Computed example of a mutant assay.
Amino acid sequence: MNNTHRERRQFLKLATTGLAAAPLAGLGMATAASAQEQLPHLDEESEEARALNYRHDATQVDHPEYQEGQNCGNCLLYTDPSAKEWGPCAVFPGKLVAEGGWCTAYVPRG
């Protein structure tokens, strides 16, 4: 068998494996999204939220560190920027924060 046939055979094996794995990759993303939806929303009155002056609505924040336009959705610590309305935050593990929220741990997304 010449080199071209070996390369073609190897390519076909890899392509077939990739096609078989594609639906499984989608399942993993769906599972992660489903798990995220089951997390509770961070309570503004919880000790952890109050410690960092967290508010669900950044437009209602009255804090010297807050700057207009800052919100969880454009914060580096909002770990799933594609999450709309509520998403995970590295500062509040196991809880979802409002995309339009804010806290003093805000770090602008580069």
Rank of each mutant, 00 (worst) to 15 (best):
T79P: 00
E65L: 13
L19I: 11
E48Q: 15
G73W: 08
C89V: 05
E47H: 07
N3D: 15
G28Q: 15
N53G: 08
Q67W: 00
N74L: 04
C89G: 07
R55Y: 02
T17F: 14
A32S: 15
P64N: 04
L14A: 12
C103T: 08
T79E: 09
H63V: 04
R8P: 00
A33K: 15
A90Q: 05
V91C: 01
K95I: 00
P108C: 03
G18F: 12
A21I: 15
E45M: 06
A49D: 04
C72H: 02
Q70D: 03
G26K: 13
F92C: 05
W86R: 08
R6E: 12
A105N: 12
T59S: 14
D57W: 01
G18T: 07
C103N: 06
K84N: 11
N2M: 03
D57A: 07
D57G: 02
W102V: 02
D43C: 04
G18Q: 08
S34F: 13
A49L: 05
H5E: 14
G101W: 03
A22Y: 06
E99H: 06
Y106M: 01
A58D: 01
L14Q: 14
S34N: 09
S46P: 00
D43P: 01
E85D: 15
G100T: 13
T17L: 15
P64S: 05
W102F: 01
Y66I: 04
S34D: 10
S82V: 08
F11A: 14
D62W: 00
Y106W: 07
P64Q: 04
Q70T: 03
L24V: 13
A30R: 14
E7L: 13
A15T: 08
G18R: 09
S34A: 13
E47G: 10
K84P: 00
R9D: 08
T4L: 09
P108F: 01
A20P: 00
F11L: 13
L52Y: 06
A25K: 06
P64H: 05
A105H: 12
L39I: 07
N2G: 14
A20H: 01
F92R: 03
P108T: 04
A49C: 03
D62T: 11
W86D: 08
V61I: 12
G73Q: 10
M29R: 14
N53Y: 12
E85Y: 07
P23R: 04
R50G: 01
A15P: 00
H5K: 09
H41G: 05
